[in-house]
Simulated scan of single mutants.
Amino acid sequence: MVADRRSTVRKVLIITLILNLAVMGLKVFVGTVTGSLSLLADALHSITDSANNILGLVASHFSSPEPDRNHPYGHQKFEALGALGIAAFLGIACFEILQGAIARLIDGGEPVRIQGSELWLLLVVLGVNIFVAFYERYVGQRIDSPILLADAKHTMSDIWVTISVLAGLIGIWSLGFQWLDVVLSFPVALLVFWSGWTVLRDNLPWLVDEVAIAPEAIHDVVMQVPGVLNCHSIASRGLLGRQVFIEMHLIVDATDVETAHEITEAVEAHLEERFSPVRISIHVEPPRYHSNEISYSTGE
């Protein structure tokens, strides 16, 4: 049985949504007052933080681990789809940041006007971002939630964005280097892009049914069960430690159904102990059957 973690996920997402909205408001306020392009770009990044929280709440609502008639394998891919939505938001943010920076380089603009009080507000923003990122990562690792871990990565990128923007504004405030504002907009865009790529990379294996466990590892566990002669055509999908589905053909040393059933149940017990949570489908074959194919070949 897969634990239903949705209530915990929703609680964390609601808390971080409130904090992200506050952070976004502060950045928009300071960015508008100072005329800083890099800070307004950072505020755009924070808008995606809030949108991601809302998306995560929607995805979590539909990501029940329990199977039903229409979704016999459960609903957990909804959560992975939510993480891909986060990657899409990050791609949009990256484009908007680059577009604004290039326009400022071509057309110029008003100089940035920054004061010490506004820099202190940005330090508060930075502190909130750090809290949100570590809070989401801690809970995400504890309950193994991809939507929380993906959002924590996004917020972590926001921390580095805010640090770079803050450093640039300090340079403008203390040294008058106005060019820092536009120049720093480009690494902000790169950080946003990298964050989106890592989220996409981490969730694609679940959606495309990439192998979850090496067939050889499953074969080694199964061959430890008395009465098993061999197993082949082994396939697995899902995410290890979250939910795995295993299929195989099992050759047993039994000529009656009852004995074959007992051996099969022992195999399932061994696999559940080793790879839980796991759902297993086994096709039983008689002793005379032979196959050297542990899993499926790559093919040409």
Rank of each mutant, 00 (worst) to 15 (best):
V28C: 09
S38A: 15
A83R: 01
A88N: 07
F78W: 13
E110I: 08
P67A: 00
S64I: 01
W120S: 11
R5S: 07
N20T: 07
T32G: 15
I15M: 13
H45L: 09
P65D: 00
I86W: 10
L39Y: 07
T16R: 02
A103C: 04
A41T: 04
I18A: 14
V125Y: 12
L81Y: 11
T34Y: 01
A41I: 02
L19D: 10
R5L: 10
K11D: 12
L26Q: 11
D68A: 00
L19W: 02
A93K: 05
V58I: 15
H75T: 04
I86V: 13
Y73V: 12
A41Q: 06
A87D: 03
D68N: 02
L40P: 06
E96W: 03
V12F: 04
A103N: 14
I86F: 14
G25E: 11
V23E: 13
D49W: 13
G127I: 03
R6S: 00
P67I: 00
L44N: 12
I114N: 01
P72Y: 02
S63D: 04
L90V: 05
L37H: 05
A51Y: 01
C94E: 08
F89I: 02
Q99R: 15
G108F: 05
I106E: 10
P65F: 00
L19Q: 08
V33I: 10
L40V: 13
S50G: 09
L119C: 00
I102H: 05
V30K: 01
S117A: 10
K11C: 15
V30N: 06
L37P: 07
I92V: 15
G74R: 00
A83G: 10
L84D: 03
L122D: 01
E79L: 01
S36W: 06
G109L: 02
S36V: 04
L105V: 08
H75I: 03
G127T: 03
N53W: 02
N70E: 10
V33E: 08
I14V: 09
L126Q: 04
